[in-house]
């Protein structure tokens, strides 16, 4: 399967199954498009009609080049992965390598669009005790098999409302590393209100990544991210974020925003973040029911797709000016990206990745917490709902018939089970709007790679 598109002056050809990416001129672009349906003579005739200035010999040379790439398995390569799709998860058995620790089901903000219903996940509020957290870490280590790299995200609600427990859990995990031959990578996701010098010092010493919630422009951020008195939080958190990021050397963090119907023109918020001095940026579409006033409409989806293109073009400008910014979804490592087994198996929710509630209950990921039928078990007894785990184990890009003809399937790996469930009622469903946005992001990300290669070549 081949996908061709033109963006920002680049003609790009993706070969889905080999992962090959080609940047071509207009003649090659047209030849590749004609290749499956026409004979060599037919292609030559069509190209000479369309590009009368190109000598016939050059057309034949280009056809030979295309044939060579096909022979090398880099164009129109066959899809031979269907039989491998479940292998990695089957081979991994019941290994778990990552936990999202919900250390606080409560929050000091009252954001109306919160997927976690103001941090309580449609249930009661509460904080995780050290004993529950310690048991969760023991559960993770004892189920991690031969995996060395383990990941723990301190999440909520607002995790800083349970700061003392976080510090003790980090210390406990560190005490296990040498004797159990494990390496913990910690992430902290916070709204920033409780950041102080002690949090900055500890986070910059122990957290491999911090995710800082900021929606961009003050009027956008303060419209929804308010405290229980209705006051916006922008003025209180921005200086704290700037101080934390400076102390961190400007690395290993993300400013993470959410865009809604109110700011489908979200690039203005990203550029605002950049103007505040932040360079590592992530901006995501809101996750909510279609009836919610914050929900993106079909018209918004078209706006957002155009915004992704504007963002890519602006990033290119800033890169050339020596002031680059990083957008999470545009980070593609073309030489050291995930292997095919990872691409076939997806994010690992419900199998190698689980969320833990403050009371020790296990869910397939943070977005399923609070939906009782998705409870997998708990950190004392392990996974008891094995049928549910098997459903998630069988969840991959080849288990979704709608993905069969999608050129982006080995980039998205079938997408997010939670988004699919909330959109269709089935974890193996398809969240169409999410797919559209994902494909546009990948097109933009690859265009940026083509531009970067050109800049390197010129240098």
């Amino acid at each position: 399967m081949v996908h061709q598109y033109q963006l920002n002056g680049y003609n790009i050809v993706l070969d889905t199954c080999s992962g090959s990416i080609h940047v071509v001129d207009e003649v090659a672009y047209d030849i590749i498009a004609l290749f499956p349906d026409k004979t060599t003579e037919g292609i030559v005739q069509a190209i000479l009609n369309r590009h009368p200035d190109v000598p016939e010999k050059e057309v034949l040379d280009c056809i030979a080049e295309v044939e060579q790439l096909i022979g090398q398995g880099q164009l129109y390569s066959p899809d031979s992965f269907a039989s491998m799709a479940g292998n990695f998860k089957q081979r991994s058995g019941n290994i778990i390598k990552a936990l999202c620790l919900h250390v606080a089901h409560t929050c000091n903000l009252n954001c109306s669009y919160c997927f976690a219903s103001q941090g309580k996940y449609h249930g009661k509020g509460g904080l995780m005790s050290f004993d529950v957290g310690k048991q969760a870490l023991d559960f993770l280590v004892s189920h991690s098999g031969d995996r060395v790299n383990l990941e723990v995200d301190f999440f909520g609600g607002e995790p800083l409302l349970n700061w003392e427990v976080i510090k003790r859990l980090v210390a406990y995990a560190r005490s296990l590393e040498t004797k159990r031959h494990k390496k913990f990578r910690f992430t902290l996701t916070t709204n920033g209100l409780l950041i102080d010098d002690e949090v900055i010092d500890f986070a910059n010493r122990e957290m491999n990544n911090v995710v800082l919630s900021l929606d961009g422009r003050k009027e956008i951020h303060d419209r929804l991210r308010v405290d229980y008195a209705g006051n916006g939080s922008y003025d209180r958190i921005v200086p704290k974020f700037q101080k934390l990021v400076r102390a961190r050397g400007g690395k290993n963090y993300y400013i993470r925003g959410t865009f809604t119907h109110a700011n489908a023109d979200f690039t203005n918020d990203i550029f605002h973040m950049a103007n505040l001095g932040f360079t590592e940026l992530s901006m995501e579409p809101v996750v909510c029911s279609p009836e919610d006033p914050a929900a993106l409409t079909p018209a918004d989806i078209e706006t957002v797709k155009r915004q992704y293109e504007i963002l890519a073009q602006e990033m290119l400008k800033r890169q050339k000016a020596g002031q680059p910014i990083t957008f999470y979804h545009y980070m593609l490592d073309l030489t050291g990206g995930p292997c095919i087994y990872k691409r076939l198996s997806g994010c690992g929710s419900g199998t190698e990745y689980m969320a833990v509630t403050p009371w020790g209950d296990l869910y397939p990921c943070h977005q399923f917490v609070g939906e009782e039928k998705f409870k997998l078990g708990d950190v004392w007894n392990g996974v008891e709902n094995t049928a549910l785990r098997e459903q998630f184990r069988s969840c991959n890009v080849y288990s979704r018939p709608q993905c069969a003809d999608c050129w982006a399937k080995l980039y998205c790996s079938g997408g997010c089970a939670a988004n699919a469930y909330h959109a269709t009622g089935d974890i193996r469903g398809i969240y169409e709007a999410g797919c559209e946005l994902f494909r546009k992001r990948i097109e933009c990300a690859i265009m940026l790679q083509a531009a970067a290669a050109e800049i390197t070549e010129e240098a």
């Binding site: 992962g19 990416i21 080609h22 940047v23 071509v24 003649v27 280009c62 790439l69």
Partner: peptide, 9 residues
Amino acid sequence: MKRIKTLAT
């Protein structure tokens, strides 16, 4: 004349 540049496999 090479009209195709391969960026990645």
